[in-house]
Write a protein that binds this DNA or RNA. Structure first.
Length: 177
DNA sequence: ACCCCGATCGTA
DNA sequence: ACGATCGGGGTT
């Protein structure tokens, strides 16, 4: 049984599409809950009309403009939260939305960004947390990990993103087949 | 102060 | 197909 290793900032400080694909098969850890990520979406910069940062910096999206490896959690439709991980270099607004994970017991409860956050009890309290292992002082319960020795990348497909009204032309949703 | 809209989900 | 439900952000 290999141990889970928290991913470093360098994993997230890369082109967002690369990070998105590479996040498939990784482990989302929140407290004592763990799930394997099987569905993500990329939101990339001010030229992506579906990106929250498309119209510039606001109080809500400010963490997207910061360094990679930071959590971006926001409320949607007044009743759900969505969890993202910020990507790319400091100053460039982009993130990966985690849309689904699979768990040993509770897959049906984690197959959507809102349901996933509800089951993991992720709220705006989890916004702007350092999810990486770069610094000893940053260690806390919300992070992405890989299993030591896991080398084969899972098969995946790319599709348009879900629930958006602009930017449907981009195939920036990635799902494990 | 007001209005519109949204990276969703459960129910019909 | 539709309603629930409310915060963010732009406009008056």
């Amino acid at each position: 049984m290999h141990k889970l290793q928290k991913l470093p900032r360098s994993f997230f400080n890369r082109p967002t599409l690369d990070v998105s694909r590479d996040m498939l098969g990784k482990y989302l850890v929140c407290g004592d809950k763990v799930g394997v990520i099987n569905e993500v979406e990329a939101y990339i910069g001010q030229d992506d009309p579906a990106c929250h940062a498309a119209k510039g910096l606001t109080k809500r999206n400010e963490v997207m403009f910061g360094p990679a490896g930071i959590s971006y959690v926001y409320m949607i439709y007044g009743m759900y939260h969505c969890l993202n991980v910020v990507t790319e270099e400091d100053g460039f607004p982009a993130a990966v939305l985690i849309r689904g994970v699979v768990m040993d017991d509770a897959c049906a409860k984690t197959d959507g960004p809102g349901k996933l956050c509800r089951h993991f009890e992720i709220t705006k309290e989890h916004n702007n947390l350092d999810m990486t292992a770069d610094f000893a002082g940053s260690s806390q319960g919300l992070y992405i990990a890989e299993k030591a020795g896991d080398s084969v990348a899972p098969e995946y497909k790319a599709t348009p993103r879900i629930g958006i009204s602009k930017g449907q032309d981009k195939l920036w949703r990635f799902v494990i087949c």
